[in-house]
């Protein structure tokens, strides 16, 4: 899966450099770092600020603004469950709360074995197949508790 590589300053600088010819390269760089390492640590923020010629505070502001970028590594797999209105119309909120309670997690937390992080997402555009979810970027429609249990079992394998 994506984001599994251990963090490496040299490799991070290579990634930053490879994007410097783009106009407004910050988001493409951050996505590439997430893709490679699964998170954006402080040293990456420092290197990016230097390359983009902005302050570290400003760079930190960008990283922290977006839900997709995080400073600490997540679980080995990421499950995003839709909480938006369309999914709620099919009982997604109740189902998600029961699922989280079963795993003893809150939104955004990772199972203690590091297998799965569960995040909320606000619409996946699969609204005729509500409730919907994304597991490691793969879409799933008409999600029921059985599907969610299978996802957990698969993630722990």
């Amino acid at each position: 899966m994506a984001g599994a590589a251990p963090y490496n300053d040299e490799r991070a600088r290579e990634i930053i450099k490879a994007h410097m010819s783009l106009e407004g390269p910050a988001l493409p760089i951050l996505h590439a770092l997430m893709e490679e390492f699964g998170h954006v640590p402080e040293s990456a923020v420092k290197d990016m600020a230097e390359a983009l010629n902005i302050s570290r505070a400003e760079m930190h502001g960008v990283v922290s603004f977006y839900h997709d970028f995080h400073r600490e590594p997540h679980g080995r797999h990421t499950l995003k469950i839709c909480r938006a209105e369309s999914c709620q119309s099919m009982g997604a909120e109740k189902q998600a709360n029961e699922f989280l309670a079963k795993l003893k997690l809150s939104w955004g937390e990772t199972t203690p074995d590091g297998a799965l992080t569960v995040e909320p997402v606000y619409c996946l555009g699969l609204c005729a197949h509500s409730p919907s979810a994304l597991i490691d970027g793969e879409p799933v429609g008409c999600v029921d508790m059985e599907t969610l249990d299978e996802i957990v079992a698969e993630a722990r394998r």
């Binding site: 407004g24 390269p25 988001l27 996505h31 977006y66 839900h67 997709d68 997402v121």
Partner: peptide, 20 residues
């Protein structure tokens, strides 16, 4: 590709985001 911020669908916020 955006990064999970709904407000970036607002055009001026989108432009800020494109600028990095």
């Amino acid at each position: 590709v955006g990064a999970g911020a709904y407000v970036c669908g607002e055009e001026t916020s989108l432009l800020e985001s494109l600028e990095g």
